[in-house]
Each structure stands twice: as structure tokens, then as C-alpha cells.
Design a binder for these strands. Structure first.
Length: 855
RNA sequence: GCGGGCGUGGCGGAACUGGCAGACGCACUGGAUUUAGGUUCCAGCGAUGCAAAUCAUGGGGGUUCAAAUCCCCCCGCCCGCACCA
């Protein structure tokens, strides 16, 4: 029995496609389709998670191509980033070389998978030919007021002299140095994404081919909330504290004010109050991560200040500095109303502050209503609130807003959670920010003619700090304005900068400008973007902003870069640990004679949790080994078939084995057909036996179902349908007349349908079936409408909603006919016992429910 | 903490707009073929039960002729939280 020779076949077809330029995209009159997968960071080797992503993208690209679309399907490298620098520090290899080698490895792996990319458009963002254009964009943003410099807080590692990412801060210490992290204020470049807050929020509604959850996450991230700014006086001082609140209606329930540790007033007080300074320092040790801050125990420091209530000057409330108040949101100060906010309530209980209810729940008695452990946060009727008494919450908000505005003690306003995008990084391996600092002229943009500002090659990583800043000559330049001695900016861009416009570069990857406008206007927006849900907010929001910023600067007339988005799940694998707790690679684990899992030396191995594949836990599979053993197509089909694409997938050895067996079954069906096949192109006789019609129906139903499934990204279901068709073809009644014709029809359909998933095998099948064309150039099959619908349907018969039997009737039979047939079923008749049913509900072609009185 | 999501046999999952729960596969069991292993083929496979039947979609409640699907409460797990990409 022959096995499918994937080694020969995959190499052969990859060569044929390459030689024919099958996947090169050109602008054309045909309708375009731009398929894009989130490009990888070249971290070393391709990860199975990447392959899952690209397999889906390839399926879409090949499917749309077969449907006659002019498809653009490019690939490139998000090549700047921290890991290259870490490798340089750890392994004494230059980031550029490390990156180049990784790209070369990973490109080879992608090519082995047979993905239909237009390789002539490959880009790597670390090349000056790429990043020079974003330097120009930055200068344009600067002119347009979309880029500016401001001080912001960062995690500082005092040993390494570097800024740390939140993920590099572990329990308040630098991940490598172990030093206690400090917070520092640093002048940083920012992009004014908040200028587009409303637009970015409103346009989410237009993204109807985006997952609901991603739109929701972005909506919450932008976090528009209507509220008020309220001025509290400070007793005995000529000073005011401005707070932002979404609940100005609860102002009479205020029992304290809380300032962010970074609030200017808090900082000023700390200068003369060592205990407060120590409290602030403690808060700072939490780092900048919002998750850590919010999860930490809520703590406050009581300052000697008392705030004067804006609506009642006789009332005073204490002023705290609290670790949970963020300087970045609102005004960096809040008023606490414990009765109607859970966090405030916990704070009030802890520091024995009064809890004054001012909103009465519907039906509650004002004389007895009290707040226990739970704040009342819903709508109700205001009381204890002077002029607001008796109003509902929305009406009270309006009333207090007007009152504050009249008295000059505040105003209604809208706050966003969204903050401007800090793009400065104190790192070497990134795109240099093209400005020059001159002692006389201040900040001077690098003249466009001098772009790109290239990274110096000769840098060292053997000392702490940013190698760019330490470089002996690079930063020293003449000021373009006055000609005097000046210094380059040594910060580089956040790597999200590169990924915020790469989809535009792909439209004309070798253009002398950032992109050719006509090409971009032809290809954009991306019709189908595919990537991990972990990018749901940052990358996707930055790209949406960037596109708008480019529009404002006259680059392109486009608002939304991604018309369709699909977010796929992760690839998980079992973890294994040895007796001493070390992680083990899957291939280090075996079964012993008794079926227990052991390592190479026969020691007991414990099975850990199912987790995302990661190098640190060693629960990874080697892609090259998989492709060596099973071939690219088997890996591709397995990744598509085992789980719904949006859900996580567990990689198992048994799973890929099963897929490999199917690949061979499919190949045998074509290479060793049960009956000799008729020649290519012979028409199927008009009249064939009923047994053959059944198979032909299966074939055409499969076309319809698979097409529908692919449209809806139900790839696992599409694979199941094709397997059902294969089962039907294996059971072909070969002795019937025209069986061979129906078999050829079914096999050709199977090859076409499986083409986007297993392109090499499909091409091989197509050739084996006698075709001289390339399957990749064949159109997508269309089902015969006559053969898609069955003539009879099976209708479920229920009694009181419980299945009691089924009846076969012609499709679309009259309700009366269904009713009669249902009542005639012996099981039903028995339960009726001669009585008439109370009701019979008939759902066409589906169900008949006989309702019998239960009395 | 906040925001988002998920939960169906031993396992991955299927089930359209509320209409036959378990398609398709993995694993397993029995049988056939094979020198052996593997492959291949046939049959079985949610639970209890001889059967009739009953019970089953994380748990509890509700709406409905009918609920995996809609509503309320609870539990568990996963993802994101702004300098990882």
C-alpha cells in the first residue's frame, strides 16, 4: 500500500509555484483582497503558534484567490525589539546579526510550510529603507502637533541604568539585576492618540467584521466617561484641589479626598513630611503596572490638610494620599464617597471615615437605610443632599453640574481612560528618533534631507545603560539650525511604531517613499487581518490611530486600516516536570513498561498543567521535526482541524498521528481508486441510480457546507465536512452504473476543497487525477443547487418536548400532514391513550411537538 | 482590583435564528488481515438499566410547547491592563 511521499511532493510544488510566480500580487482590474497575518518578531525559530496563525491566513489567501480575487498576501519581520538586545548582552552577538540569522531561519521554515506569500514584498523593519519613512512620519506628526515631549514616570533599574518594562519588574525588583526598582520621571516623546479618542471610539461601530469582544475591549480601553471636575478648597490655604468624578450627584456623601502619590500637592507636602515621603517611596516600589497597583492593598496616608466642600463651605473632609489613585487618569485626585463606591467604602472602613448614604435604593426607608459591606452603586433617589433631594441619579447629576458651573466650583466634563502613547525607549535596537537637542535652539528636527538617521553598528553592551547614549561619536552633531555643537536624541521608538504602518508598506514594499499612494489606495484596507487576541488593544488601537494621523498629515485618505479582523487562540501543550521540579521537553518523556511516564534515566515524571507553549516551561514542539516526520500539509491540517480557530488548541502527538493517517487515506483514494476513473472532463450521465445520487448529493452538499464554513472561519467544521465526504466516497457502491463518474466528481471536489488547507497534497491529487493545469489556478467549485437539498427530511416527533420518534416526510410537507403522521406514531398514540392532544406545534422540516395535558 | 472571554462524553469538539445533544476526529474495547510491530478493514463506544425507560451540556433558579442556546445568582479556568511582542 503506497504512502504519500510528502517530501518529494512538497518540494516539487513549492518549486513549481515559485517558478510560475503563482502568488505575486499586481494591481489589477479584478476585485482585490488583502490578507494579512500579524508579522512575527524574529525571536529564533518559528513557533507552532505562528504556524497556526499563518496556516489560517494562507487558507484565506488561497480560498479568495480561487474565488477570483486579486490577492495580496505578504510577509515580513517586526525586527526591532528587546530580545535582540538581551541576546547581545547574554551572548555577545550583535542585535543586527542575531536578528538577521533568525530571519533567515524563520524564512526557511515559512517556505517549507508552502505558504502562498508574495516574497518579493518581504520587509524587515530594522532596515533603514524601512525605518527612514517612519522618521519622516514622526517629523510630520511633530509639525502637526501630534507628537510632543512630556515628563512621565518609568520603572528604573538603578544597577543596569535602564528603564524596565512592567513584565521585567518581578516583585518590585529588576528581572536581571534583582535591584529594587525605582520610579523615575523622564522626558519622553508622546504621540497624541487622545486627539482621536472620540473618533476611535465612534468608528468601532463601523468595524462590523471585527470580533465583538475586541471592539468591547477597545471601547473599555478608551474608557469615555461623563462626569465633572470639582474644585475643593483647602482650609487655611489659598489653594484648591481639582478632582474628577463620574458621580457628582454623590458630592454630599463625600468623606475624604485622595491624591495620587504623584500629585504635585502630594509631592510638595512630602518635601516637609518625611513620613509622607516614605509612603510615596513605598507606593513607587510597586512599579508602574496598573495591574499590580490595583491589586495591591489599598492604603492611604492622612495629610494635615482639610478640604472644603464645594457645596457647603462649613463641611471639611480629610485629605489623603492613596496608592490606588492614578495620576494619569482624570486630575490625579478623587473625592471618596464610601456609601456609593465599593473601593471608597473599603478605604473608609479601614481608616474609620464616615459613611454617608445620599442615594436611597428604590423602596428603602430613609430612616433605617444603612450601608453594610456593600456600597449601593445603582440608581435611586437622592436624599441628605440639599437641593438634589428627591431627584433620580441622572437628574441629580445635571442639577449639581449646573450648580457647580454657576458657582465656579466645577464643570461638567468628559474624561477618557486612554492616555497618550509614550514612544520613547532608552534602547539601542530600535528606530532612532530624528531630533537634535541644541543648548541654544532647543529641540530641532533632523532636516528631511538628512534622513535616515541610521543606527551606528559599532556599539557595545558590556556596560550598563543605553549603548546609543554611550557611543563615543554618534550623538555629537552640529545643530541644523545654528550650527553649534548639539546632541542627537538617543531614545529610539517603541517597536509598536513599526507595526503601526507596515501594512501600508506592503502595498508597495520597494517604493522610495513610505508607500506609493495609488498602490495603498488600491489595496487598503486590509480585508482580513489575523493574529492573536493579545493584540486586541495596543497594536490594533495604535494602528487605527496611526492611520488617522497619516491621513491628517496628507499621506492617505483612509481611516480604518483593518476591515476584517480575526483573533485566533493560542497553541497549548502539556507540561512535564522531573522529580526535582525541572521542566522537561516532551521528547525527553517516555512511557516505561508499566505505562508510567519517566525521563531518560527512568525517573518518575509528573504531568503538569496544559499551558501556552513557552521555552521556559519547555512544553514546545520542534517544528522542523514535525515537518520532517509528517510534512507541512499534515501539520497544517492538524492545526486547522483540531479546535475552532478562535479557541486555544492543544498540540498532541496522537492528534498529528491521526491527521497523518487521514492524509494517506485521502491519497490512496486517488492513487488507488476503487474503480478505474473515466477520463478528465467526461460528463456525468443525466440518469444515475439512486445510490449514486446519494453520493453526488454528499459531494455537492459538501461544497456548499465547506464554502459556508470557510466564510465564517469555521475551519475545524470545514475539515469535518471534507472527512465526511471522504467517508462517503470510500463507501461508494462501485458496481452501480456511473459510479466511476461520481467518484471522479467527488475526488475532484475533495482536491479543490482541501486545496487551501493542504495545497501540496491537493496539487498532487489533481495531477494524479489526470489534470495538466495547476490546482492553484483552478476556480473554487460551485454546488449544483438541485443536489444540495434532500427530497425528504427526517422530522423529530416530541411529546411535551421529549423525543419519542422520528418520521420521514417529503421536504416542506404541509403542517397538517406532519401533524397526522406524528399522531400516528405508535409511541405517540400510546401516550395519547385515545385523547386529543392539547396542541401540536410543527416547525417546518424540523420538529413536531405534541402537547398533552399533564393533569 | 478593573476589563474581556470560556465551561458539552475519557479527550478535541459539533449542534443554523430556541427545535432529534454528542457530527467529525482522538483514545479505548472486541474481531479480521499481517511473520511481528505498525498499517488497513469490520463492529462497539455519555451514564444507569436485562429491558422499557430514566438521567445528562460547570452548579442553582427562571422564561418557554421546547433551553447547551435566552434571563438572574454562584463556581472554576484563561487572556489583557499601557516599556514583551
Amino acid at each position: 500500500m503506497s504512502r504519500y511521499n510528502f517530501r518529494e511532493s512538497e518540494q516539487k510544488w513549492q518549486r513549481v509555484w515559485r517558478e510560475r510566480g503563482s502568488f505575486a500580487a499586481h494591481t489589477a482590474a479584478r476585485p482585490k483582497y488583502y490578507v494579512l497575518e500579524m508579522f512575527p518578531y524574529p525571536s529564533g525559530k518559528l513557533h507552532v503558534g505562528h504556524v497556526r496563525n499563518y496556516t489560517m491566513g494562507d487558507l484565506v489567501a488561497r480560498y479568495r484567490r480561487a474565488q477570483g480575487f486579486n490577492v495580496l498576501h505578504p510577509m515580513g519581520w517586526d525586527a526591532f525589539g528587546l530580545p535582540a538586545e538581551n541576546a547581545a548582552i547574554a551572548g555577545n552577538v550583535h542585535p543586527a546579526l542575531w536578528t538577521r540569522d533568525n530571519i533567515s531561519t524563520m524564512r526557511g521554515q515559512l517556505q517549507r510550510m508552502g505558504f502562498a506569500y508574495d516574497w518579493s514584498r518581504e520587509i524587515a523593519t530594522c532596515h533603514p529603507e524601512y525605518y527612514r519613512h517612519e522618521q519622516k512620519m514622526f517629523l510630520d506628526f511633530l509639525k502637526a502637533g501630534l507628537a510632543y515631549r512630556k515628563e512621565s514616570w518609568v520603572n528604573w533599574d538603578p544597577v543596569e541604568h535602564t528603564v524596565l518594562a512592567n513584565e521585567q519588574v518581578i516583585d518590585g525588583r529588576g528581572w536581571r539585576s534583582g535591584a529594587l526598582v525605582e520610579k523615575r520621571l523622564l522626558a519622553q516623546w508622546n504621540l497624541r492618540i487622545t486627539a482621536f479618542s472620540d473618533e476611535l471610539l465612534a468608528a468601532l461601530e463601523t468595524l462590523d467584521r471585527w470580533p465583538e469582544r475586541v471592539r468591547l475591549m477597545q471601547e473599555k480601553w478608551i474608557g469615555r466617561s461623563e462626569g465633572a471636575r470639582v474644585l475643593f478648597g483647602v482650609a487655611g490655604r489659598d489653594e484648591a484641589i481639582e478632582v474628577f468624578t463620574t458621580r457628582p450627584d454623590t458630592l454630599y456623601g463625600a468623606s475624604f479626598l485622595a491624591l495620587s502619590p504623584h500629585h504635585p500637592l502630594a509631592q510638595r507636602l512630602a518635601e516637609r513630611d518625611p513620613a509622607l515621603a516614605e509612603f510615596i517611596a513605598e507606593c513607587d516600589r510597586l512599579g508602574t503596572s496598573e495591574a499590580v497597583i490595583e491589586a495591591a492593598e489599598k492604603r492611604g496616608y492622612r495629610t494635615p490638610l482639610e478640604a472644603v466642600h464645594p457645596l457647603d463651605p462649613a463641611r471639611r473632609v480629610p485629605v489623603y494620599v492613596a496608592n490606588f489613585v492614578l495620576m494619569e487618569y482624570g486630575t490625579g485626585a478623587i473625592f471618596g464617597c464610601p456609601a456609593h463606591d465599593q473601593r471608597d467604602l473599603e478605604f473608609a472602613r479601614k481608616y474609620a471615615l464616615p459613611v454617608i448614604p445620599v442615594v436611597l435604593p428604590p423602596g428603602a426607608d430613609p430612616a433605617t437605610f444603612e450601608i453594610g459591606d456593600t456600597a449601593f452603586v445603582d440608581d435611586g433617589t437622592l436624599y441628605n443632599s440639599d437641593f438634589m433631594n428627591g431627584l433620580s441619579v441622572p437628574k441629580a447629576k445635571r442639577a449639581v453640574g449646573e450648580r457647580l458651573e454657576q458657582s465656579g466650583r466645577g464643570e461638567r466634563t468628559i474624561a477618557y481612560r486612554l492616555r497618550d502613547w509614550g514612544v520613547s525607549r532608552q534602547r539601542y535596537w530600535g528606530c532612532p528618533i530624528p531630533v537634535i537637542h541644541c543648548a541654544r535652539c532647543g529641540i530641532v528636527p533632523v532636516p528631511e534631507a538628512q534622513l535616515p538617521v541610521e543606527l551606528p553598528q559599532d556599539v557595545s553592551f558590556d556596560a550598563p545603560g543605553n549603548p546609543l547614549a554611550r557611543h563615543p561619536t554618534w550623538k555629537h552633531v552640529a545643530c541644523p539650525a545654528c550650527g553649534g555643537a548639539a546632541e542627537r536624541e538617543t531614545d529610539t521608538f517603541d517597536t509598536f511604531f513599526e507595526s503601526s504602518w507596515y501594512f501600508l508598506r506592503f502595498c508597495s514594499a520597494r517604493a522610495a517613499t513610505a508607500f506609493d499612494r495609488a498602490a495603498a489606495e488600491y489595496w487598503m484596507p486590509v480585508d482580513q487581518y489575523i493574529g492573536g487576541v493579545e493584540h486586541a488593544v495596543l497594536h490594533l488601537l495604535y494602528s487605527r490611530f496611526f492611520t488617522r494621523a497619516l491621513k491628517r498629515c496628507g499621506y492617505i485618505d483612509l481611516d480604518e486600516p483593518f476591515a476584517g479582523l480575526f483573533t485566533q487562540g493560542m497553541v497549548l501543550h502539556q507540561t512535564y516536570q522531573s522529580e526535582n521540579g525541572e521542566w522537561l521537553f516532551p521528547e525527553e518523556v517516555q512511557e516505561d513498561a508499566t505505562g508510567r511516564l519517566v525521563d531518560g534515566e527512568g525517573r518518575r515524571v509528573t504531568i503538569g498543567r496544559l499551558e501556552k507553549m513557552s521555552k521556559s516551561k519547555k512544553n514546545v514542539v520542534d517544528l522542523d521535526a514535525i515537518v520532517d516526520t509528517y510534512g507541512a500539509d499534515t501539520a497544517r491540517l492538524y492545526l486547522l482541524s483540531d479546535s475552532p480557530p478562535e479557541r486555544d488548541l492543544e498540540w498532541t502527538a496522537a492528534g498529528i498521528d491521526g491527521t497523518w493517517r487521514y492524509v494517506n487515506r485521502l491519497w490512496r483514494l486517488v492513487s488507488e481508486p476503487a474503480v478505474p476513473l473515466p477520463p478528465v472532463g467526461r460528463a456525468i450521465p443525466p440518469a444515475v441510480p439512486a445510490e449514486i445520487v446519494v453520493v453526488r448529493r454528499a459531494t455537492h452538499k459538501t461544497i456548499a457546507a465547506v464554502t459556508d464554513d470557510l466564510e465564517k472561519f469555521h475551519f475545524n467544521r470545514a475539515v469535518a465536512r471534507i472527512r465526511e465526504l471522504t467517508n462517503a466516497l470510500e463507501d461508494m457502491p462501485v458496481d452501480e452504473p456511473a459510479a466511476a463518474d461520481a467518484l471522479r466528481e467527488g475526488l475532484e471536489v475533495a482536491a479543490r476543497l482541501i486545496g487551501p488547507m493542504m495545497p501540496h497534497l491537493a496539487e498532487e491529487m489533481w495531477q494524479e487525477l489526470g489534470h495538466t493545469t495547476l490546482l492553484v489556478d483552478e476556480p473554487w467549485p460551485k454546488p449544483d443547487p438541485q443536489l444540495v437539498q434532500d427530497e425528504t427530511v427526517t422530522i423529530a416527533v416530541q411529546v411535551n418536548g421529549k423525543l419519542r420518534g422520528t418520521i420521514d416526510l417529503p421536504r416542506d410537507a404541509a403542517n397538517s400532514e406532519v401533524r397526522e403522521a406524528a399522531l400516528a406514531l405508535p409511541q405517540v398514540a400510546r401516550m395519547l391513550a385515545g385523547k386529543a392532544p392539547e396542541n401540536v406545534i410543527v416547525v417546518q422540516n424540523r420538529v413536531a411537538n405534541v402537547v398533552i395535558g399533564r393533569a
